[in-house]
Design a protein around this nucleic acid. Structure first.
Lengths: 224, 224
DNA sequence: ACTACAGGTCGTACACTGTACGATGACTGT
DNA sequence: ACAGTCATCGTACAGTGTACGACCTGTAGT
């Protein structure tokens, strides 16, 4: 059997780095990164725990590979539109992807070396900004600013104990407001009550800050 | 011995929730959250591992308490200045504190219920914004935006493998640029080279985005 | 055809984790 | 003196990452 045939079989039934990492991703999505152990991953793949170490040097490297898969899922900024639309698209995509893989956000803190998909992504974003007329320094500023916003938003979103506006309304009345006595937390109490009364939906929150940042960056094109 | 005397002794030599949590914080600062185990924490306190469970229900609750201590360290927005200066001060403080405790950022993702210091902090920030003339909805927007930026920036900063501008310059030449061939990553390559040539210091990056956000929020006061 | 080797699989073992359970002792109020 | 509470912690158990080495299988060389 040739090497190519063997790899073909591997992608059908046997193990491969691909299969190991994607199954790890599925497991983490389902049970959280806490529930991802080498033994459980192996048994999900119908293999022994130590077999995984033929495709991954150790668990750290497995996590690195998982993060890079997540970056692969994020849309690159499209090239044929204005820079604001392009950056908005990729930011919205990034936020959606990170919301689907909440474990990825916390993991990013400890991984110091970016994977290939991460690099490709950064290259595309930088290209978009530079072609829009931002200087090297301004593009760097914009990169930090936009990424900080996206990651920080995803981080906050991941720590919310509810998913929909309805759940937020229910929890605000049943859980949050009782913890916010008006004499100790007058402003938080007022806000919580007013927001739930107005039918506030945190799903729309992301666009507000994103568009504010994009608009504020606009006049900084073509300047030092 | 009365209860008060006993607590006095406890704060001198014996255990207490205070001592357990603050020592846990020290350990996490020194060795990372990965190096914080109940056994190691106990032995750092000169106690048996199971003794800790008299002051903390479990490790999760210990981590919650640690996060709240971190929030306690963040300066509240001062009341006697304009809103922009106040928010800038607290944002700079938050960033500094999170840089001192990098493990805290990743931990925030999994803790869903805010501690008392966290609540006090949010109350103070909301108060500052509301008194500056932001509506409830706008104050919420501003809160999300500013917090996202601060947390996201801290998250990115924590994953940088260098601390100073000099280290950045060295690593760019020795590590990053070789990984960025100009034909595959023309823009990243250009940026890395140009930034190191210009003596770029990432320590100043934070203020740029922060001031941009504050300036963009300014005209939204006293509007719906 | 027999041997040698290479690559993939995994059983076992070790040091480590969080923590349930129950024993032990010191101190309390009667 | 006695019963009872409270803080301490030894032991044990299930689960973790992974080092080591044994095994099988399929190919290459003679």
């Amino acid at each position: 059997m040739s090497a190519r045939e063997q790899r073909q079989v591997a992608s059908d039934a046997g193990l491969s780095k691909q299969r190991v990492v994607t199954e790890a991703l599925r497991l983490a999505d389902r049970e959280g990164v806490h529930g991802l152990s080498m033994r459980r991953l192996a048994s999900a793949l119908g293999a022994g725990a130590m077999s995984l170490y033929h495709y991954v040097a150790n668990k750290e490297q497995l996590l690195d590979a998982m993060i890079d898969i997540v970056f692969e899922e994020i849309e690159l900024p499209p090239e044929q539109t204005d820079w604001q639309s392009a950056m908005r698209r990729r930011a919205v995509s990034a936020r959606r992807v990170l919301a689907c893989h909440p474990w990825a956000i916390a993991l990013m803190e400890s991984r110091t070396s970016p994977g290939p998909a991460n690099l490709r992504h950064r290259e595309a974003v930088t290209a978009c900004l530079r072609r829009a007329g931002f200087s090297v320094l301004m593009a760097t500023h914009a990169n930090w600013l936009l990424d900080s916003y996206v990651y920080g938003f995803a981080l906050q979103e991941a720590s919310l104990p509810f998913d929909t506006a309805d759940e937020l309304a229910d929890m605000t009345e049943d859980v949050f407001l009782p913890q916010l006595p008006p004499d100790e937390f007058p402003y938080l109490n007022e806000s919580a009550a007013a927001l739930v009364a107005a039918g506030y939906d945190p799903a729309e929150e992301f666009i507000f800050g994103l568009d504010l940042i994009l608009a504020a960056l606009e006049p900084l094109r073509d300047s030092a």
